[in-house]
Design a protein around this nucleic acid. Structure first.
Lengths: 340, 340
DNA sequence: TTGTAAGCGTTATCAA
DNA sequence: TTGATAACGCTTACAA
């Protein structure tokens, strides 16, 4: 760290007590306008900048929010981050960012790092692998304000922001049915994630609403490895009971599907229709363009930050009550689900 | 911030002096193994975590690096961030992240925020609009270690990491020529950015190497607004002296070109060939798939962080000398530049 | 090998 | 309206 001039030195230069200067800079009512002016102009002249660590130590707060996400190269998480940063910047908060790379061990380490108060609060979306949540519980038990979004853990009693996963998946599946699909598959990452479960429920209920049987073989669990996924999907598409419609619960599985389809003789949408959860701006560029369920990423980020900052600045008036706030997604129909 | 137990309290619990406990926890050679063991186990038992601000204040360093990027929803910057974080985590450094949204005023504010020593160093890529660099100079003059990548400013005497922009643009243009293009356009963001200038030079030299005239009308300066760009490109493609080949110096302009082409009767690659700087994993998914010049984003991030951390931890042995380090890009030929 | 004490740069309490 | 002083939690001379 670079040391500039200190408050004490500034005070000496002004022939004032450090406490007076401190109060003047913090615009205290106890200080005369004349003194304030003098102090401020001298502070500017000498390029004074308050040491944030001394202040944090003294005030017991860091003006910093930690954000933990499972991956960075993902338009949804990137947009949420932008949403959080927008509000944080407005209120003078800084953002400490951590990428877990979908690795629970890494998530645990990062969370433990935050146990020392480096951040005033945490906004996070858990790893798809996370099953043991003792590290999250510890954080919450210590009283550190924490908010979850998208990949939430219901067990931690705090506010969570998600989209209407059930309804979106239901609508998406219904749309595929309306477009003539008879065997609809669900592509997902894992069974454990709450959002995966909700999306699965929405898909299930849409299938059942037609009086159809649920076929467990139509749910494909994918990995985090692009290549493996493409292979997996390709095999699935080559199999005798291949689907004629796919609801992809994750953007990258939709991309993997495009890749896989290229290796087969199938064509989208004639042989296979596809709709996916995705916030990617290039959905419309794919060939054929991809029908999407777009999550309100920016709003989710905004809401997380707003609530958190309210809680931090007015702890008596706001609380992170144990509730799930839902902001609806938007379905955009494009060529990939065009009917015959 | 949440207050846990302090060093003093931990020491009291152990019937030891705070200094002894501090040394034990920091694995000092002065402390006996027996004491160390006792201290560490008690620290764990009582869930002790050193207050980072007290330490920062005392040691005059924050173990934090600030990263400033012009946009987050961009695969290149996201990958660089991942590269920086990888090394930073290894060395126990935290990352403070700021997105300028290509806005110079925002960049200036953020940079001024960092004047107080909140971060030990800065890694940044400037806004494409930045012309006045007094804020950057001030940072550097104060002695804050700063490294630039990609969007660099040569005026600040420090280490910069870039890719071989000139050669890549030259090779890309040459490739278009070899594939039969006669009128090649360059799509770029602005004239001021050093990388834009280098790419322009590469393009220019490739054109001239054929003995062709340089046509200034073939360089298209785009904005940051997607819609405007699509419109601009569409008009360009509809004009009588439309190009038959395009070198796009920015990923998003390639996407905009796909959009624009959709609105015309032109076809890629038969009527128009396209190659672009891009780190997007979906380049191969576009139809036709996009030939790309892929920057070594992860390596750039790694190198930035490694050098910076060396400089921070061993200031006597390493320095951020005024030089530009070049890591080469990789050209991947796909369908968008297929010859007849 | 351990303890004492000072100090990092702030802000808050109390006194003037 | 301003000043003196203590305290936040840590590390490091220096002393024992």
């Amino acid at each position: 760290m670079i040391s500039g001039i200190s408050l004490k030195e500034l005070a000496a230069e002004l022939n004032l007590a450090p406490s007076t200067v401190s109060r003047a800079l913090n615009d205290s009512y106890e200080i005369s306008e004349a003194t304030k002016k003098k102090v401020i102009s001298m502070a500017e002249k000498l390029n004074y900048h308050a040491n944030p660590f001394a202040r944090s130590l003294r005030e017991n707060k860091s003006k910093t929010i930690a954000v933990i996400i499972p991956e960075r190269i993902n338009s949804f998480f990137a947009q949420v981050m932008d949403g959080i940063e927008e509000i944080a910047q407005e209120h003078g908060y800084h953002l400490l960012v951590y990428n877990t790379h979908e690795d629970t061990e890494r998530e645990r380490k990062i969370v433990n790092l935050l146990l020392n108060g480096r951040a005033d609060a945490i906004v996070m979306s858990v790893t798809s692998q996370t099953s043991d949540i003792s590290h999250l519980r510890k954080l919450h038990d210590r009283g550190l304000p924490i908010i979850f979004f998208d990949r939430i853990r219901a067990e931690i009693p705090t506010t969570k922001f998600i989209t209407n996963d059930y309804e979106s998946a239901y609508e998406g599946t219904k749309h595929l049915i309306k477009q003539g699909c008879k065997r609809i598959a669900l592509f997902t990452l894992c069974k454990d994630l709450s959002i995966s479960q909700e999306r699965q429920r929405g898909y299930n209920d849409a299938i059942k609403s037609e009086g159809w049987e649920l076929d467990p073989g139509l749910t494909l669990y994918c990995s985090h490895n692009e290549e493996i996924n493409v292979k997996l999907i390709e095999e699935f598409l080559q199999s005798p009971d291949r689907p004629d419609g796919i609801l992809s619960s994750v953007e990258k599985l939709a991309f993997a599907t495009y890749h896989a389809v290229k290796r087969t003789k199938l064509r989208i949408p004639s042989d296979l229709k596809l709709i996916s959860f995705s916030n990617s701006s290039i959905a419309g560029l794919l060939n054929p363009s991809l029908s999407t369920i777009t999550q309100p990423a920016l709003s989710i980020g905004n809401e997380c930050a707003e609530l958190l900052i309210k809680k931090l600045t007015k702890p008596l008036h706001y609380d992170l009550i144990d509730q799930v706030v839902t902001i609806p997604s938007k379905i955009t129909i494009r060529e990939s689900t065009l009917g015959e």
